[in-house]
Design a protein around this nucleic acid. Structure first.
Lengths: 126, 126
DNA sequence: AAAACATATGAATAGCTGTTCATATATTAT
DNA sequence: ATAATATATGAACAGCTATTCATATGTTTT
């Protein structure tokens, strides 16, 4: 990369004069910041929390494990919709399930999930 | 609502035989669960965390406030894209900014944001 | 084995989202 | 005032998403 063009700063090849304010900060952070791969997985995680139906399902499950038809009752959407969304939540590692006879009992996967939901609810309540 | 049809449970008008396992749980939770409005706002909040570019921007800002062109440098996308995403983050209450001369300095709005990002990162790292 | 039940899945579609391009606004320097 | 800089904004388009409908799978009951 070009290092000493006249008016262009070496750190900011895309523009001429800007970027001078926090050059030190930028340099210091550049290699410490989350990787693209991590950012991708984090965004995918939050994407699974970005749908109203899924959020309602998860808040139901905070009350304890329950089967699909109970969730369907509480959330009030079709069986198919619940099932599709549970699949998304399962793939994101947000819920787990166990089988008991004909029913599958879903529950919150771990404490991270509760924490994120609680923090999110706090944030919108202010 | 019908209370004592032959084979149909009163609580679950949509189906005949299911819903019996956690009737108590369902009844107990039905009026305590998050409202539709709350669920909507929570899902909108997480929706603003559901994009890779926005996540990268926020992790940058965890290192301290910075102006748009610094973010642009670190994240490596166009000025327009950064600006559009900052707008989304601002509307969600995830970032704030102050003006200094020609530049706008953005920063993380409050501790909820850091908590959610940290918890999300923990979750994907397991 | 057949029927009923509980849940999952695939396809299709309407609606939403993120980026880009062009341009506008606000601030500072000349 | 004019030019340059820093950022925001609107329109447009390609790609993604959530629901619905129909159907498949797995389990229990008869």
């Amino acid at each position: 990369m070009a290092e000493d063009k006249e008016l262009q700063c070496a750190e900011c090849p895309h523009h001429i004069e800007c970027g001078g304010k926090n050059i030190e900060l930028v340099k210091r952070l550049a290699d410490k910041i989350i990787t693209e791969e991590e950012a991708y997985y984090v965004s995918e995680l939050f994407k699974s929390l970005s749908d109203m139906t899924r959020v309602r399902i998860l808040f139901c499950l905070l009350g304890g494990e329950m089967c699909v038809c109970d969730i369907q009752e509480l959330v009030g959407v079709t069986q198919s919709a619940v099932s599709h969304q549970l699949r998304t939540l399962k793939q994101a590692g947000l819920v787990k399930y166990r089988r008991e006879g004909k029913s599958l009992y879903y529950s919150i996967a771990d404490d991270h999930v509760s924490t994120m939901l609680a923090t999110g609810l706090e944030h919108i309540s202010e």
